[in-house]
Amino acid sequence: MGKGQPGITNTIRVLRFHAGEMTQAALAEKVGVTRQTIVAIEQGRYSPSLEVAFRIAAAFGVPITEVFSWQAAD
């Protein structure tokens, strides 16, 4: 996906909280990316590839639509 897209939001912070305040480093290790990448995704500065998006969803055991959502620009 590349640079963060304006219409894409995510609930990673909330999901980490519900996962026992999972750290960004722990999530990064589960997903197979660096902690900085998780930070960038969480802050909306970077939109991950489809594979990494699925990996993040799998790390929380939820469907991808529960992690990422997209709203068309008006």
């Binding site: 990316v33 660096t34 990448t37 970077y46």
Partner: peptide, 10 residues
């Protein structure tokens, strides 16, 4: 250093 991921490559 950490192993490069997709963001590093981009």
């Amino acid at each position: 250093d950490e192993v490069a991921d997709e963001r590093d490559r981009l």
